[in-house]
Simulated assay, not measured.
Amino acid sequence: MNTTAPLIDPFARAISYLRVSVTDRCDFRCVYCMAENMTFLPKAELLSLEELDRLCSSFVNLGVKKLRITGGEPLVRRGIMTFFEAMGRHLETGALEELTLTTNGSQLSRFAQPLYDLGMRRINVSLDTLKDDKFAAITRWGRLPQVLAGIEAARAAGLRVKINVVALKGFNEDELFDIQSWCAQHDMDLTFIEVMPMGDLGNEDRLDQYWPLSDLRARLATRFTLTDLTERTGGPARYVRLEETGQKIGFITPLTHNFCESCNRVRLTCTGQLYMCLGQEDMADLRAPLRNSDDDALLQEAIRNAIARKPKGHDFDYSRQKVAGQMSRHMSHTGG
């Protein structure tokens, strides 16, 4: 077997982007992501930081160029900076082109500068409202001033910040232009995400929360001239530029827009499960080959076998007023 050949799936897509959940734990309990009283995984099931290093390094050796670290909240994992520093060595050699992070922002005041110093240049911060009371309600445990201070620390450190906003009907519709204006004022990119049918949280009806981004985009167009951009990252976002402000706005519409044709990514959970598609239940267990052998040959073979099963696309659909393709796992399990 050629151990250096790049990862190519059955549809001739090169897999160059790995999203890695380093923990299922979080210091928030966002209503669309977690139940309030979550049962977290036993420590023994979680990959150690050393195992995460070995796994991610194997993917980098197989041609992955972009690594996005997610959670839960990745920055609440004890000792996580040792893992980031380990990945920083791949940035130094050029084997890894980008190391990024998706965070709720709560810990950025502590970690923004160290992250920049090891080579990170961009981060995504999840933030769905700029109002204290609504922020407390949707995150259950979060405090908005702490997050805003973290965002400011990230910008001061030199990190490029993109704000991710989940579009929630009846919750943040009235803040559309406030959030857009705030991001423009601070020179931050902005991406809106349609709520997805994942996990049974017991107290939230996803159909009631569903705010189509086609509607959100139409509202933006009442005040701004929107120019579609041809930019593609291999991911789900489609971008426009607001001509009046120069802002770049992204739209992630997993329910109303099929973005699978150019999918170049896979997702690794904190327990070593590799999901080849966010919208499918199929996964490959990489923890067993990782722990069963000190030699990476077994692990690389398992990775290649998994990529050979990557499907062409997924099937989320709200059109019949029921959720087809609904996933049974929480968003926090696969890292958002």
Rank of each mutant, 00 (worst) to 15 (best):
A302W: 12
G202A: 00
T225V: 13
W141D: 12
T245R: 02
V161F: 10
A284C: 08
R291N: 05
M276H: 01
R329P: 00
F11K: 08
I163N: 08
G119Y: 02
R287K: 15
G158F: 14
N2V: 10
E85H: 12
A149L: 08
P236V: 13
E231G: 05
R155G: 12
V240Y: 06
N164H: 10
T100G: 03
D128F: 07
G142H: 03
G119T: 04
A35L: 05
P10S: 07
G313P: 00
A95K: 02
T269L: 01
N305Q: 14
S16N: 03
W182D: 03
L52A: 09
H314V: 04
T191A: 08
R219C: 06
E194C: 08
R287P: 04
R291F: 09
E73Q: 02
K65W: 01
R232M: 09
T139R: 07
W182F: 09
T139F: 12
V76L: 11
A157P: 00
L190I: 05
V20Y: 06
E51A: 11
N172D: 12
R265I: 01
R287Q: 14
Y210M: 04
F84G: 07
Q280G: 12
N264H: 01
G150D: 07
E92Y: 03
Q300W: 01
A112Y: 06
L207Y: 13
T191N: 05
E194Y: 12
F192W: 13
K131E: 11
E85Y: 03
L148Q: 08
I123S: 00
L229I: 12
R309Q: 12
D24G: 00
K134I: 10
P254G: 13
A35P: 02
I138H: 03
R121S: 11
W141E: 13
I69S: 02
F316E: 07
L201E: 10
V22F: 02
E261W: 07
A136Q: 14
A306K: 04
M276S: 01
I249S: 03
T4M: 06
